[in-house]
Amino acid sequence: MGFIGSVFSPWYAWSGRKDPANNCCINVATYGKGGRFTMTDRGRAALRTSRDTLEVGPSSMHWDGDKLVISIDEIASPPLVSRVRGTITVTPSALTSVELPLKADGSHVWRPFGPISDISVDLEANGWQWSGKGYFDANFGTRALEQDFDYWTWGCFPGARGATAFYDVTRRDGSTFETAVRFDPDGSAEQIAGQPQTPLKRSLWQVKRETRADPGAEPRQVLSMLDAPFYSRSAVETVLDGERCVGVHEALDLTRFRMAALKPMLAVRVPRRPAWTFAAD
């Protein structure tokens, strides 16, 4: 993930979030045995952008024709401090025109660019080379997430005819936002009536989780990806319109994230490196 204004960085929060460009990063997480996590908070000197490219220190994302090429050169945070380096290529089947505000004032927007994508991963470690289904989206905002939201879940589930994504949000004022969107491989999209929200077993940190499923179906986690006191990412199996499918699911507890005691814990996993000098072109 690429961040300008690193929303989960304690350094960005402590700065008062006055200068998003001064708290940027490219976050990488690998899963399974020997999984690594990198989220180095970098300063304004490490950021360069153009129409097709986002550079943050030694890593970059570059749009090359019909594909997004992500070049990674990062250092994983404790306890497995090591280099994470290589290339990830994401090729959407098509780009969508979907743009959904999560609040009526447009202060938070979800933009699923390529919900149906192919991905190729080639990182410099044994077993970190593979190809499969990918996903490419973005969120934009002018306010801190924890200012406006208490909780949300998101999931995207590929199926035989395309993919279905769900976004379920609880705002701080008690109002909710719920959407279900079906995407076709040609980039067309249709908002649909989503299946009922269905409880999912809580994460290791006891983050509440729920997703969508046909009545009577019981969704289940098939792979834990990222587990934090306020956040869970996992591969989840569910049943949608009679089809059993596995997708990526996220749950975000922003009530917990607002806790001041959480920020020093995060600083261990999110080091601050403000200085950077790009090599001469």
Score class of each variant (00 low, 15 high):
G2K: 08
V7K: 01
V7W: 02
S9Q: 07
A13R: 15
N22F: 00
N22P: 05
N23P: 00
T30G: 06
T30C: 09
F37V: 12
F37L: 14
T40L: 11
G43M: 07
T53R: 15
H62R: 14
W63E: 05
W63K: 06
E74Q: 15
S77P: 05
L80N: 10
T91H: 02
K103Y: 03
K103E: 02
A104D: 14
G106F: 10
H108M: 12
G114S: 04
I119W: 07
I119M: 12
S120M: 05
S120N: 11
V121D: 13
L123W: 01
S131M: 05
F136C: 08
D137I: 03
A138G: 06
F140A: 08
F140S: 12
A144M: 08
A144Q: 10
E146M: 00
E146W: 01
E146H: 01
E146C: 01
D148W: 09
D150F: 04
Y151A: 01
T153E: 06
T153K: 02
W154K: 07
T164G: 05
Y167T: 03
D168C: 02
V169E: 02
T176E: 10
F177G: 00
F177Y: 12
V181H: 08
S188T: 15
Q191K: 11
I192K: 03
I192L: 08
A193H: 06
G194I: 04
P196S: 12
P199K: 01
R202Y: 02
W205C: 06
R209V: 05
R209G: 05
E210Q: 13
T211E: 10
T211D: 09
R212L: 04
A213W: 00
D214C: 12
D214I: 01
D214L: 01
A217G: 05
E218N: 07
P219K: 00
S224E: 11
M225Q: 13
D227K: 08
D227L: 07
R233T: 02
R233A: 12
A235R: 09
A235F: 04
A235H: 06
D241R: 09
D241L: 02
D241N: 14
R244T: 15
V248Q: 09
A251I: 03
L252H: 07
L252C: 13
T255N: 04
M259F: 13
L266G: 09
V270I: 15
V270G: 03
V270P: 02
P271N: 06
R273K: 14
P274K: 11
W276L: 02
F278A: 14
